[in-house]
Write a protein that binds this DNA or RNA. Sequence first.
DNA 1: ACTTGACCTAGAGTTAACTCTAAGGTTTAA
DNA 2: TTAAACCTTAGAGTTAACTCTAGGTCAAGT
Lengths: 136, 136
Amino acid sequence: MKTYSISEVANKLNLTVYTLRYYDKEGILPFVERTSSGTRLFKESDIDALKIIECLKSTGMPIKEIKSFIDWCSNGDSTLQQRYNMFLERKAIVEAQLEELRKTMEVIEHKCLYYKTALDAGTEDIHKNKKIEIKN
Amino acid sequence: MKTYSISEVANKLNLTVYTLRYYDKEGILPFVERTSSGTRLFKESDIDALKIIECLKSTGMPIKEIKSFIDWCSNGDSTLQQRYNMFLERKAIVEAQLEELRKTMEVIEHKCLYYKTALDAGTEDIHKNKKIEIKN
DNA sequence: ACTTGACCTAGAGTTAACTCTAAGGTTTAA
DNA sequence: TTAAACCTTAGAGTTAACTCTAGGTCAAGT
């Protein structure tokens, strides 16, 4: 079975070796094996697990909570319900994030138009009588 | 013209008074006026500006960069191009964030299904022969 | 044999964005 | 007039997630 060194994994996943060692220190890489001399050996499945870790991280999940999940994974089928609940919760969080990001996008797009108009007019004053214009 | 105290603004925008004072210290609230005794008085337009600041912050923009924008705003029409460019750049960033968040959502939804199936079966082993099943 | 380059750990340092404390000033209402 | 409930500043403390350094081990190539 093919294995990868820490720097190979870092390259593959766009992380640094420092970050991977930090993750290991925090206990979220308990599955990574070592050579007799102590060098980490990452399996293909370890890289898959790291991709899930990065996915959870991208939802804003703190490393301590990711550790709970990893611990559950190590504890087998008795933790299936917790893991399912965790992903349902994450789903709700990401849905809320998407909704907020869409709102943010609307504001930003509105500002793009605002500044385009101002730039064409040469002055921001073009927007000064906005409310009066709406009235008429 | 109606004005608001720092704690009123904090409540209105779901921030703390500490955060607002920190923003002021960082120089992103130069427009907020004071009473003769030094108490901050927030105008309606200051609250609007804070909403834009929160919008930019939600895109991951660091406060130092937000300060550049606020400084440009203080410098009038000569900075319209910079401000326009900044919002175009932010738009591209938010588009990328939306795209990544959608991908994250797909992974999370997949995991929800995965754990639902495992939970119904009572064991994660139900997923063990996945690749073989696809072959047949 | 020895250099090179990758690996290791422990632990210190960094950064951003708060978050709070201490010490003090002001306003309001009984 | 005095207590409560605000407000102020300077500056220290916190937290998460890295990021790096020092000092050392190990395996491969010349």
